[in-house]
Design a protein around this nucleic acid. Structure first.
Length: 250
DNA sequence: TAGGCCATCTGGTCCT
DNA sequence: AGGACCAGATGGCCTA
């Protein structure tokens, strides 16, 4: 596959990871060790004796994220990591690895460390989780996505609420007649609490809350014809419910 | 023990 | 030519 080939957009509503995030998942892992800045036995300075080439030139733990600390190098049997053994056929065709490959490995490691640092920075600005749980990479990205969307939606609704004579929009085709076709004051309050309240509620996993927002967006986008502003909002409290999975709807 | 997550190595491809 | 980016492969650690 071509590296530059644009990846097909992942449907967050159907992927397995999305499902994990859509529910109040028990996967809120309390990665105590990781939160402590170490992972497993990652106590080395990242020296990997690759392929028995002697000096790896690889002392460069260039970016310990503090959470994803470098791990213990792969077990080296006879100066060769198992993965190297498995990759022997591929390696042989390009002759013995030289400094170039080693440097490339170093750069790649550094690049991934930078990526992890950026993810950590992202985690820091996201609402804190109630417990010492660390979002996984995919969870961080999706949470950020939903969080941004929820904030945007909050602003949009605030703007809409501020216009007393905002035009009414027709109910979307196929919408529930009982559903509101505009956001009333009460609904706005409910929506506000449903969105922003989750940030500060220690009893609510914000990932779930913003997944709710994400679900709402999906629903709206699926129901609204192009160019028509979404008008159907039906918030229901999802924080503090016994089972949030069954309490929200759109 | 299986599954999830992660770090790392690696070779291919694209870009400068 | 060399760096950046990417995805596959692999193995370690952790949790249910």
């Amino acid at each position: 596959m071509s590296p530059k080939e644009p990846c097909a957009p992942t449907d967050l509503r159907t992927s397995r990871d999305a499902v994990t995030l859509c529910r109040f998942s028990p996967t809120v892992r309390s990665r105590v060790k990781e939160a402590g800045g170490t992972l497993g036995t990652g106590d080395t300075g990242d020296t990997l004796g690759t392929g028995g080439t002697g000096d790896t030139g690889d002392t460069g733990d260039t970016g310990d994220t503090g959470i994803n600390a470098p791990r213990k190098p792969l077990a080296v049997a006879g100066g060769e990591a198992p993965s190297m053994i498995n990759l022997r056929p591929r390696s042989e065709k390009s002759a013995p690895r030289g400094r170039r490959r080693i440097k490339a490995n170093d750069r790649e490691r550094s690049r991934m460390h930078n990526l992890n640092s950026a993810l950590d920075a992202l985690r820091r600005i996201l609402p804190a989780l109630p417990e010492e749980a660390k979002l996984t990479k995919i969870e961080t990205l999706r949470f950020a996505h939903n969080y941004i969307w929820a904030l945007s939606e909050t602003l949009r609704m605030a703007d809409q609420h501020g216009h007393a004579h905002a035009p009414e929009y027709p109910a979307p085709v196929g919408s529930d007649p009982g559903s509101p076709t505009s956001v009333s004051s009460a609904e706005w309050d409910s929506a506000s609490s449903a969105v922003s309240g989750c940030e500060i509620s220690a009893a609510c996993d914000p990932r779930n809350c913003y997944t709710f927002a994400h679900q709402m967006k999906c629903k709206i986008l699926s129901r609204e014809p192009p160019g028509v502003r979404p008008v159907t909002f039906y918030f229901k409290s999802i924080c503090g419910e016994e089972d949030p999975r069954n309490t929200w709807r759109i």
